[in-house]
């Protein structure tokens, strides 16, 4: 069954990445920064170094594990910020309409017109590199699609009988948005958020690759790729494994989002007999 396959594989991949990140300190055989063995640099994968060593003799496996921490934090936190901004703006714009809707629409269009990576780059340039500025930069630049989806879903819901019935029953607008509209649009929003986690992981990698994200020597998949770029021929494993980690993370969260959407479909949910 397609539903189970998506969900299980997505959950599995996401779980691997999450476990890797959370337990990096216990799993990693070497320290990602201090254990630099210049005598053993650019070593291919072996029993001692499962993913080989990089140009400075650091264990790639350990660095990939610690890199997962950065990627997950950036992915989850920035998407949480994006989803909150997008949903709040989209639902209120769709529900109230009028000048507020025009304003939010205009803002969304501006955000969509600016490439989000370029915008994030600009914010990073102002805030300086580092994890907190990464979270802010990626959290403020990728809410426009969520906003659009939340708005259009709200528009189609707000004239339906059950929303009107809630108004007629005397519920306030805030209550209606929270109890009537939000539960019915959470599916698409969640899917957007989960897909966005993959996007944010990629964006973090790109920003770190460009040198404005996570500062070396702290490992992130992006700056590992930067380091590995120069020795792509001599030590391809130093680039392949962080790349593979990015691939697995993005694929995992995308499948998870897909599976979650199917699961959240109310028609799939029946009363437990």
């Amino acid at each position: 069954m397609r539903l189970r396959f998506n969900l299980v594989l997505g959950l599995l991949l996401a779980a691997i990445v999450i476990i890797a990140g959370v337990f990096a300190a216990w799993i990693a055989p070497y320290h990602p920064i201090i254990d630099a063995d210049l005598m053993n640099s650019e070593m291919p994968p072996s029993w001692e170094h499962w993913m080989g060593t990089d140009g400075q003799g650091r264990d790639v496996f350990s660095r990939v594990l610690y890199g997962a921490q950065v990627s997950l934090t950036v992915g989850l936190v920035s998407q949480l910020i994006n989803s909150c901004i997008g949903t709040a703006l989209g639902v209120s714009a769709g529900y109230f309409g009028g000048w507020w809707d025009d304003l939010v629409n205009g803002l969304t269009n501006v955000m969509l017109a600016i490439p989000s990576l370029v915008f994030a780059l600009a914010i990073m340039a102002v805030l300086g590199p580092g994890l907190p500025s990464l979270l802010i930069a990626l959290g403020l630049t990728n809410w426009s699609w969520t906003c659009r989806i939340a708005r259009s879903s709200t528009l189609s819901l707000k004239n339906q009988g059950f929303v009107q019935a809630a108004k007629v029953a005397g519920f306030g607008d805030g209550n209606i948005m929270r109890t009537q509209i939000l539960p019915n649009i959470i599916g698409p929003v969640l899917v957007m958020a989960t897909l966005g986690i993959g996007g944010a992981v990629l964006a973090e990698a790109a920003l770190s690759f460009l040198g404005v994200g996570i500062r070396p020597p702290q490992p992130s998949w992006g700056n590992m790729l930067t380091d590995a770029r120069e020795l792509l021929r001599a030590a391809p494993w130093a680039a392949v494994f962080p790349g593979l980690a990015i691939f697995i993370t993005v694929l995992g969260f995308n499948l998870l989002g897909d599976g979650m959407r199917d699961l959240l479909d109310p028609h799939m949910r029946t009363r437990r007999a």
């Binding site: 009988g161 059950f162 009537q180 019915n184 109310p266």
Partner: peptide, 18 residues
């Protein structure tokens, strides 16, 4: 709300599915 209430036309859209 205590004065007048309404029954809607489409029974499929008038109940919150969640």
């Amino acid at each position: 709300a205590r004065i007048a209430q309404m029954v809607f036309q489409d029974p499929y859209a008038s109940l919150n599915p969640r």
